[in-house]
C-alpha cells in the first residue's frame, strides 16, 4: 500500500493525475485562480485602474502612483494586523489610536528623556506591544468581548494622547532627521516598500507557519483548538500585540512622511475603520477562521484607487464614502455567495 502512495509523494506533486491537454490545464488554472478569495479583489483593482486611466490620463503617472502608494501603505500595514486578529476571532478598534500615540512616545523619549533615536523608536514599538498585551489580557482573562475592550482602550489612549500632547502637533525630533526619517517614511517609496515587506512576511506567517495555523484554528474552532492543546490565550494575545505593533509602526511611518507629529493622524478612528474595511473587502470574515493578508492589501489598494480617482475626476469627497460603504457591503455579500459556491464546488 505504501508503494502506491510513494510515487506522487516522491515527485512532490499535489495532484497525482496524469498530464492533461493544455486547454484543461488552463481551465483548471483559471478555476483555481477564481477560487482564491484575492482574485475578485484583484480584478476590481485592475478594473479601476483601467477605468480611471481611461477617464483621466494622469492616473498612471509616477507622481499619482506615488500618491496612491502613500495612501495605501500605512493603512494596509494596519490591515495586515487586523487580518491576523480577525482570523483568530477577535477585533481591535483601538489600533488607530496606537498609531497616533506612537510618534508622540518617540518624541517624548527623545526630546524629554534624551534617549537616542533608534532606541526611542524601539521603545515606542515595545510600549505598543504592551498595549496589545493589555487588550489581550482584558479580552481573554477577564472575558470582555474584544470590541468592548478595545473601544475602552481607544478612549483611554485618546485621553493619554490629548493630555500629554495638549492636542498640539510637534515637529519630528531633530535626531531622527536625515537617514532615519528618509528610510522610515519620508523617502518617496519608503512606506510602500515597508508595506510590501510587512505583507510578504505576514502572508507567510499566516499560511506557512505554525503560528498561522494555530491562529486559524483558534478562530475557526476555539474549543477544538484548545482540546488539541493549542494555547488559545497565547495565540490571541500574540495577535493583539502584532496589531498594536504594526499600528505603531504605521503611525511612525506616517509621521515621518508628513514631517510632523499630529494627534489627528488617521483622524483617530479613520485608520482603524479603513483597515477593517480593507480586510473585509479583501475577503476576511469577521467570524474568524479565515482571511488573507494579500486580500487586505488589495482591498486597501481598491479604496485608495477610488479615493484618488474620484479626486482626479473632481467628484466630491463626500460621495467617496458612499462608494466605500457600497464596496464593503457588496464584497461581504459577494463573499458569502462565493464561499457557498466554493463549498458546493468540490467533494
Amino acid at each position: 500500500m505504501s508503494d502506491t502512495i510513494a510515487s506522487p509523494a516522491a515527485t512532490g506533486a499535489d495532484q497525482p493525475e496524469p498530464p492533461r491537454p493544455a486547454r484543461r490545464v488552463l481551465r483548471t488554472a483559471t478555476d483555481a485562480f477564481l477560487r482564491r478569495r484575492e482574485a475578485s479583489v484583484l480584478l476590481v483593482a485592475i478594473g479601476l485602474v483601467v477605468y480611471f486611466q481611461a477617464s483621466t490620463p494622469i492616473f498612471l503617472t509616477t507622481d499619482n502612483l506615488r500618491n496612491i502608494a502613500q495612501a495605501t501603505a500605512p493603512t494596509a500595514i494596519v490591515a495586515v494586523g487586523i487580518v491576523l486578529l480577525l482570523v483568530s476571532g477577535e477585533i481591535d478598534v483601538s489600533v488607530g489610536m496606537v498609531a497616533a500615540l506612537a510618534p508622540y512616545l518617540m518624541h517624548y523619549a527623545i526630546d524629554l528623556y534624551s534617549i537616542p533615536a533608534i532606541p526611542a523608536i524601539l521603545l515606542a514599538l515595545v510600549i505598543a506591544a504592551g498595549i496589545g498585551f493589555v487588550n489581550g489580557f482584558i479580552t481573554i482573562r477577564l472575558k470582555v468581548p474584544s470590541f468592548v475592550t478595545t473601544l475602552g482602550t481607544f478612549y483611554l489612549l485618546y485621553g493619554v494622547l490629548l493630555t500629554t500632547s495638549h492636542a498640539y502637533p510637534v515637529a519630528i525630533p531633530e535626531p531622527t532627521k536625515g537617514n532615519i526619517q528618509t528610510w522610515l517614511g519620508a523617502g518617496d517609496w519608503a512606506t510602500l516598500a515597508w508595506c510590501l515587506l510587512v505583507v510578504a512576511i505576514f502572508h507567510i506567517v499566516l499560511t506557512q507557519t505554525r503560528w498561522g495555523l494555530h491562529t486559524i484554528s483558534v478562530g475557526g474552532n476555539p474549543l477544538g483548538a484548545t482540546e488539541a492543546g493549542i494555547r488559545a490565550t497565547r495565540v490571541k494575545t500574540g495577535n493583539f500585540m502584532i496589531v498594536s505593533v504594526l499600528g505603531a509602526f504605521a503611525g511612525l511611518l506616517e509621521a515621518f512622511r508628513i514631517n510632523s507629529i499630529d494627534p489627528n493622524i488617521g483622524g483617530g478612528t479613520r485608520i482603524t475603520f479603513t483597515a477593517i474595511a480593507a480586510a473585509v473587502i479583501g475577503g476576511t470574515a469577521l467570524a474568524g477562521g479565515s482571511g488573507t493578508v494579500i486580500g487586505a492589501l488589495l482591498g486597501m489598494l481598491v479604496l485608495a484607487e477610488l479615493q484618488n480617482g474620484f479626486n482626479l475626476l473632481g467628484i466630491s469627497a463626500n460621495s467617496f464614502f458612499l462608494i466605500q460603504g457600497i464596496a464593503i457591503l457588496a464584497s461581504m455579500i459577494a463573499n458569502q455567495y462565493l464561499s457557498r459556491l466554493r463549498r458546493a464546488g468540490r467533494t
Binding site: L213, I216, S217, G219, G220, N221, L223, G224, A225, E227, A228, G289, S290
Partner: peptide, 9 residues
C-alpha cells in the same frame, strides 16, 4: 467526542 477538527484547515 466533538472530534476537535478545524473546518477551515
Amino acid at each position: 467526542q466533538d472530534l476537535a477538527l478545524v473546518n477551515e484547515l
